[in-house]
C-alpha cells in the first residue's frame, strides 16, 4: 500500500499530466491542434452548431482544425485512451457556428453529437455513434456497428461490404444504406428507407408514411420484419430467394414477381401472400395498412 506522501505525489503528477494534455482555444480563433492518441481508443466530438467532419488516418494522433464561431471555445483533451474534442458555448447562447475537421486513428470508436450540425465521417473503422438534432449525417467506409439518431436531416451510409449492425433512426429524414452486409434496423416517421445491402441478416424496418425499399440477398437465417401504416414496401431480392414469406396489407395491393399470386382477404379489403421456397430458415414479413407491397427479383 502506498504511503500518503507517495499517493499525494502521484495525484499531483497525474493532475499535471492531464493539464499538459488538455488545451483550450477561444472564440474566433483558427484551430490547428494535435495530440497523440491510441490506435483503438475512443474519440468523442461535440459541437452545438456548424459541421463536424471526421476522417480516419493511419497516424496515432487526433488532429483538429477549423475556425471557432463567435463566443465559442474548444476543449481538447486526452485521458488515457479517451480523446475529447468539445466546442463549448456560454449557457443560453445559440450563436456561433463552428466548422471542425478532425482526423482520428482509423481504428477508433467514434462518438459525435450536436444540436444543429452536419456530420460527415470517412474511413473510421471502430464503432460509430452519431447523434444530431437537425442536420445531415454521412458515414462512409465503416466496418463495425453504427448507431445514428437524428430528428431531421437525411442519413447516408456507405459501408465497406463488411458485416455490421446499423441502428438508424430519423423523424423526417430519408435513410439510405449502401454497400453493407449484416443487420440493418431503420425507422423513420415520414422519411423513406432505401437499403442496398450486400446481404440481409436480421432487419427491422419501420415507417409511418415513408416508403421502404430493400435490395439484397437473404442470408440463410435472415429475419426481415417491415411495417408501415401508409407507406409502400418494395423488396428486390437476389440469390436463391429461399425462405418463408408472409406479406399482408389491410387495404393496399401486393404484387409478386416470383412465387404465387397474392389472395384477397376473405372478409374485408386488402391482400395477403404466404409461401415458402427452398429449405432455409430465412423469413421475410411485411405488413401495411394502406400502402402497397411488391416483391421482385433484384
Amino acid at each position: 500500500m502506498n504511503s500518503p506522501d507517495v499517493s499525494g505525489r502521484k495525484a499531483r503528477l497525474y493532475t499535471a499530466l492531464l493539464l499538459l494534455a488538455a488545451t483550450t482555444a477561444f472564440a474566433g480563433e483558427t484551430v490547428d491542434e494535435r495530440q497523440p492518441a491510441t490506435a483503438r481508443g475512443t474519440v468523442e466530438v461535440s459541437n452545438v452548431a456548424g459541421t463536424i467532419t471526421v476522417r480516419g488516418t493511419s497516424r496515432e494522433e487526433v488532429h483538429v482544425t477549423g475556425e471557432l464561431g463567435s463566443k465559442a471555445r474548444l476543449e481538447f483533451s486526452v485521458e488515457g485512451a479517451r480523446t475529447i474534442v468539445k466546442v463549448v458555448l456560454p449557457k443560453s447562447s445559440n450563436s456561433g457556428s463552428t466548422d471542425l475537421d478532425v482526423e482520428v486513428p482509423n481504428g477508433s470508436d467514434l462518438t459525435v453529437s450536436g444540436v444543429s450540425i452536419d456530420i460527415d465521417v470517412t474511413d473510421v473503422h471502430g464503432r460509430l455513434d452519431l447523434q444530431t438534432i437537425s442536420g445531415e449525417v454521412q458515414a462512409e467506409g465503416f466496418d463495425r456497428d453504427v448507431r445514428i439518431n437524428t430528428v431531421s436531416g437525411d442519413i447516408n451510409l456507405r459501408g465497406n461490404k463488411g458485416s455490421a449492425v446499423a441502428n438508424i433512426a430519423s423523424t423526417s429524414g430519408n435513410i439510405e444504406i449502401k454497400n453493407m452486409g449484416g443487420d440493418a434496423n431503420a425507422t423513420s416517421v415520414s422519411g423513406d428507407l432505401n437499403l442496398r445491402l450486400t446481404s440481409v441478416g436480421r432487419s427491422r424496418l419501420r415507417t409511418t408514411s415513408g416508403t421502404i425499399t430493400l435490395y439484397g440477398e437473404l442470408t440463410k437465417d435472415a429475419r426481415v420484419d417491415s411495417e408501415t401504416v401508409s407507406g409502400d414496401i418494395n423488396f428486390y431480392l437476389g440469390g436463391s430467394r429461399d425462405g418463408d414469406y408472409e406479406i399482408a396489407t389491410a387495404v393496399g395491393e401486393i404484387s409478386n414477381c416470383f412465387g404465387p399470386e397474392p389472395t384477397s382477404h376473405r372478409y374485408g379489403p386488402g391482400e395477403e401472400l404466404k409461401f415458402s421456397q427452398g429449405s432455409t430458415s430465412a423469413s421475410l414479413r411485411a405488413k401495411t395498412l394502406s400502402g402497397d407491397i411488391s416483391l421482385c427479383k433484384e
Binding site: 445559440n94 444540436v115 444543429s116 438534432i133 437537425s134 430528428v151 431531421s152 423523424t171 423526417s172 416517421v189 415520414s190 409511418t208 408514411s209 401504416v229 401508409s230 389491410a250 387495404v251 395498412l289 394502406s290
Partner: peptide, 27 residues
Amino acid sequence: DLPANDRARVQKGLKQIEDGLRELNDA
C-alpha cells in the same frame, strides 16, 4: 429546450404517428 424549428419538426413527427394510430384504430 429544443430550438423552435426542431421542436416543431419533432411535434410534427409525433402528430404523424398519432394520425396513423387514429387511422388504424378506425380500421
